[in-house]
Amino acid sequence: MGDERPLPIGARGAVILAIVAAGAAAVPWLGLTPGSLVPSDGGLTLVGEFLVRAASPALTSEADPVPEGTPPLLWRALAAARTTVVFAAAAMSLALVLGLVLGFASSSAWWADDLRGRGRLRRVVAPVLTWSSRTLMVLMRSVHELLWAVLFLAALGRSPTTAVIAIAIPYGGTLAKVFSEMIDEAPRDAAHALRSSGASPAAVFVFGLLPRALPDMIAYSLYRFECALRSAAILGFFGFPTLGYYLKLSFENLHYGEVWTYLYTLFALIVVVDWWSGALRRRFLA
């Protein structure tokens, strides 16, 4: 290692130096002084009260008096969890469709010479389709789901479906990018064997290429489902009845016990999905 280095710092060292320099420049620009990190007296008691309640999340509503007709707290938490799961699952189903279609269209393996015959049509169609789908993916991905939600709120007004679409667009773009990379990086031995035995391009793809990439794709999709749960919860800050909505409300009413109840509910949802994807990975990818 490092026998003939032209400089005392290698490329890796230069990258790390750049990171440190960027970090050092960001601190004064943002005015990050240690003094502004100390919470005010009011802030400090608030931190204390909030953290203390971590050990004792509320089991019943903390409003006093409880407004008439409010369902019990745990029921509210469950209903919010249900909406969160509904939004996340529906958004992931749309995102998967978008991701599969765009991911296949933009994967270079699908168009590779050694996996498909040569044809004049393909020479023209392949680059156009590849690059248009890649551009679309970038556009979908580079706008955050909350900003998609803000756009849809302004354009169409609030509706559960807009929340689902707002999550599905950037997630579809991300899935497409990752799927196309996974397909391109999958081992091609089986695909070549099929191709040389005269199978059609579609059969090469479905039976040769896809099964090799599938375990990774499923594991990644489950991870994104976990992210979708978080995104769906946060959309509640914009008035959708997911966990974030109730969480914000309770926090603003200083009902910290309730905040922790909702936090632990979200935590439980994520732990379940995390366990699920872990178990699947162990059995499936072994």
Binding site: R82, T83, V86, A89, S93, P160, V164
Partner: peptide, 9 residues
């Protein structure tokens, strides 16, 4: 279930 029973219209 999400699409059918989730109140998405």
């Amino acid at each position: 279930w999400a699409w059918i029973g989730g109140g998405l219209v």
